[in-house]
Amino acid sequence: MPGNNPAMLQNSDIFEADAVIYDLEDAVAVTQKDSARILISQFLKSSKKPFPMEIVVRINGLDTDYYMDDLNMVVSDKIDTIMLPKARVETLIELDKILSRIEEEKHLTKKIGVIPIIELAISVLEINQIVTLPRVNGVLLGAEDLSSDLEVARTKKGDEILHPRMCIAVACAAYKIDSIDTPFTDTNDDIGLKEDCRFVSSIGFTSKAAIHPNQVPTINEIFVPSRKNIEWALRVEAAAKLADEKGLGVFSLDGKMVDKPVMDRANKILKKARNYNLI
């Protein structure tokens, strides 16, 4: 959602998306960065009840003059995640330090997550390290800028981004974090969107970014949890309840340790399944 558009901001909770990204980067003109920061901040402050979706703010990159003002203005208990463009290991480490400082200064009650956007060739090479960094709870592929960096044409079929997609899907799966595929930019091609969703789902992506609200139902249709995952999550939930009664924080299921990240993943699956009346 463009961060300087009040009509869009105030309707952002009605589209049944798992998360909404309020944008301070490319969707906001250079002359309106200040205006967008203040608008997003006031919009979030004005909300009296919790949002039904994850609140993400895409800031400007750490190679710009805007990111520090972005962070100082929008980081609060009202947001869940900062999305970082052109992310690299070194910029993510720097972002972690800045967020820690702001969290302390503002006495935040939660730790803000980070979703790096992989849109540089060098970031693809760094992906196995990026997914291990503090706060990183998901990764978004940014195929438009990545194609530009690769100096290749962006196509609907996406052969040019096959390798980055594979790298991201595997790295995220290994660390049990969300892998978010690049948006499908033709908002009038629902069949193409569906094919794209099916393909990336088949190689392990857990979700896909939408560039327009009319893409959300199709994306949800493809990415709802499978029956197998729902059954696993229900078993984790039952085992967690039992462990809680015994005062155990960590327990094992099917010979594998279940700790907070695994329980979080199970809870996410169940939440999504319940949202779609699958259980």
Binding site: P6, Q10, D34, S35, I38, L39, S41, Q42, F43, K45, S46
Partner: peptide, 16 residues
């Protein structure tokens, strides 16, 4: 505009 927008635009104008 809703209240938050009025406030945001005024704060931006003041800052500018």
């Amino acid at each position: 505009a809703l209240d938050y927008t009025i406030k945001a635009r005024l704060l931006t104008a003041i800052s500018r």
